[in-house]
Structure formats: C-alpha cells, structure tokens
C-alpha cells in the first residue's frame, strides 16, 4: 500500500514537472512569436514609408523609375527611360530589343521589348534565398516563353517559372542542364496577367493570376538574383515586378 502511494505521488510529481516544462516552452514560444509580430509590424510600417517616399525617390533618380525598397521587398515599375531602374539588363542587346516606354490606359508606364528569337534577362541587384515574386506582363504576337528567374548565379545556374503557349513549368538550370520540377498545360494569357513564383525551402510554386498552377520540390540552393527572362520572338510588355524576401 505504501509502495503504491509512493509511486502515485512520484507519478503526480512527474506529470506536474511535464506540465511545468510544457508551460515554460509554450511561454517562450509565445514571447518569440510576439517579438516576430513586432518585427513584422515594423516591417509593415517600413513598407508604408517606402510607399510614402516613392515619388521622392523616383525624382532622385534620373531615370525616374518608380522604386520601393523596404529591406524585405522591392518593386520595379518602368521609368521614362528603359533599363535605367533597379531591374537591369543582364543578358541581351539593348538596341536589338528596341525598348520603348509608353503609358497604358490606367496611367501606368509600360516597358515594351521586341525580341527576335534571342534571349533577354533583366535582374534585380542582391541575392535572395527564400523569396516570392510577381511579374505583371502582356504579350503581343509572342512565340516563346516569359519567365521569372530566381537563385540566378550565372547564365547556366538558376531556377525559374515560365509560361509559353503550351505549358507553365517550374524548372532548374544547373550547369547548363535543365530539369523540370513541375509542368502543367497552360496557354499564354491574351491580356495583362500576373505570373507569380514562390521559393520557400524545398518548395516551389508557380501561380498565374493568383491561381496555383505548379507545385514542385527541389533541393535548396545558394542565394541568387531575381529577375525576368524572355526567350522567343515578338513583343512583350512589362508593367510591374515585385520581389519579396520570405522570412518566418
């Protein structure tokens, strides 16, 4: 009887200890998440400030390109002159692309590029590991593919989400060798569309107009640049590109 009583009191003590340990762990997790929330709050404020200074920053740059940078996200919109903003031409001949900046019906500036079967790559500065990106684009008699490239280290090593007249795919170029992470049938949209990619850990997603089209998996790779890749023949119009650094 005495032994059972002793065992029961020991059991009670152990359960109480477990509860105590659980409570401490839970509290520390909560505190950590509150700190993160505060950081997120500051980030949001920072983003708002970024918006607030948008016009001023545009004036500061001769190219007049609209830029927003709040540390965690960057946004590009065409300026008065092509290739002078934060999205720089990394591959392709600027003159052959016959770039022109026009104003759309909604008042937004549009960068039009004319491709003649070659490749053009425009990149943001800076390297990101986990990221999300949106590209607002439209094509006109274009035969080829429009892509968002990320983890770009050189012309032979990068990841991408691309759309052509046949399919939308998530892929990877490693030492010049292409591998497809996911591929789905899809046609190039006729009107303005938003191509989105997210690369979080080993998970890659491709969306078109906020609709999930691709979900693939691949090994994580070193941080790299983010940008646009155009490959084909015809006209492509770019209105906006936004890149976000993803954190927990």
């Amino acid at each position: 009887m005495k032994t059972i009583k002793f065992k029961l009191s020991w059991l009670t003590s152990c359960i109480l200890l477990l509860f105590l340990a659980g409570t401490i762990t839970s509290c520390s997790t909560k505190k950590e998440s509150e700190e993160h929330s505060e950081e997120a709050g500051h980030h949001d404020e920072g983003t708002e400030e970024g918006h607030g200074h948008n016009g001023e920053e545009g004036d500061q740059h001769e190219e007049g390109a609209s830029m927003e940078s709040a540390g965690e996200s960057m946004m590009w919109m065409p300026g008065d002159q092509p290739f002078t903003g934060m999205l720089k031409l990394a591959e392709g001949d600027a003159q052959q692309l016959a770039p022109s900046v026009t104003t759309d019906n909604d008042g937004a500036k549009v960068l039009t590029l004319t491709l003649s079967g070659d490749k053009a790559i425009l990149l943001f500065d800076g390297a990101l590991e986990n990221l999300g990106a949106n590209l607002q684009f439209k094509t006109d008699g274009f035969q080829g593919e429009v892509a968002i490239v990320h983890h770009y280290t050189d012309a032979s090593n990068y990841d991408f989400v691309s759309i052509s007249n046949a399919a939308m795919e998530l892929g990877r170029m490693q030492d010049g060798k292409k591998s497809v992470l996911n591929k789905e049938d899809k046609k190039m949209p006729a009107d303005w569309a938003t191509l989105t990619v997210s690369s979080a850990g080993e998970h890659y997603k491709g969306l078109l107009n906020e609709e999930l089209v691709n979900h693939g998996h691949g090994e994580t790779r070193a941080a790299g640049q983010v940008g646009v890749m155009l490959n084909g023949k015809g006209k492509v119009m770019l209105k906006m590109m936004e890149v976000m650094n993803l954190t927990e």
């Binding site: 999300g132 997210s198 979080a200 850990g201 998970h203 976000m244 993803l246 927990e248």
Partner: peptide, 13 residues
C-alpha cells in the same frame, strides 16, 4: 499569402 509561404513550407517539412 506570399509572406506565409516559408512557414507553410516548414510546416509541411
């Protein structure tokens, strides 16, 4: 949401 993608990825893993 885009900013939740990394958390979703980690949750999945």
């Amino acid at each position: 949401p885009m900013r939740a993608e990394l958390t979703a990825s980690n949750h999945s893993d």
